[in-house]
Design a protein around this nucleic acid. Structure first.
Lengths: 109, 109
DNA sequence: TTTATTGATTGCAATATTACGATTAATATT
DNA sequence: AATATTAATCGTAATATTGCAATCAATAAA
């Protein structure tokens, strides 16, 4: 019914899925790439560069912030968003462990 | 309106998002972990172990297969699913490049 | 203080996703 | 041939997601 039965999965599986889900939209991928490149960390600049409406970008930023992957610094009327290095590193460990499973065992088909 | 404006993003960004999206559900994470462990590669066994209805598991398997991350071998009335090693490796390269961006530049906030 | 500027929030329409009962298709078994 | 087993497909209900116009809140500039 549109919602995942998270209760039947373990914490690790749910965490992987939650991280992956936030990367599952090209706008959020694009935002994160911009933040890594430091081309534009201000919301308004991201709106101009990406080409989605301001409320839409703001919403995507909110989701990234909610997961802790980015943080926002208010500077006057604008807000500067940046990668949260510590949380990004934690996320990377979780995702790497999942993506980098031993593939050599796989001999059945 | 419920659909992503993929046309305003580049191929790499859309590819990352597409891969991530398929990992964005704990059932698919769980299925992949099972296939890596080779605990159960037959659809019916996955149904028993994961605890979702057969049509639901079948649907998730279909999505994984569509992306090429798994392949299915028919064995009598049952179907044995396995990781597609070649495609999994390709996916890993794309995702690693995205997740492993140089974080040291990040000094603005 | 009045008026920009910037970004968050609200509300809504369109579409996508998740889950499963019922059914169907294909192969095995009897 | 008739029946059982297995997995795919169809149809549908419930919920989530995406995108944006309109509005609001907060600060800056005049």
């Amino acid at each position: 019914m549109g919602l995942a039965k998270t209760e039947i999965f373990n914490d690790q599986q749910n965490k992987i899925a939650t991280y992956a889900k936030v990367f599952g939209h090209p706008a959020r991928v694009s935002i994160l790439q911009h933040l890594f490149e430091l081309n534009s960390c201000v919301c308004g600049d991201l709106v101009n560069e990406i080409g989605l409406a301001q409320p839409t970008i703001s919403q995507h930023l909110k989701e990234l912030k909610l997961l802790g992957l980015i943080k926002g610094n208010v500077e006057g009327t604008s807000v500067c968003y940046c990668i949260d290095i510590e949380n990004w590193t934690k996320m990377k460990e979780v995702m790497f462990q999942f993506l980098d499973q031993d593939i050599t065992k796989n001999t059945c088909c």
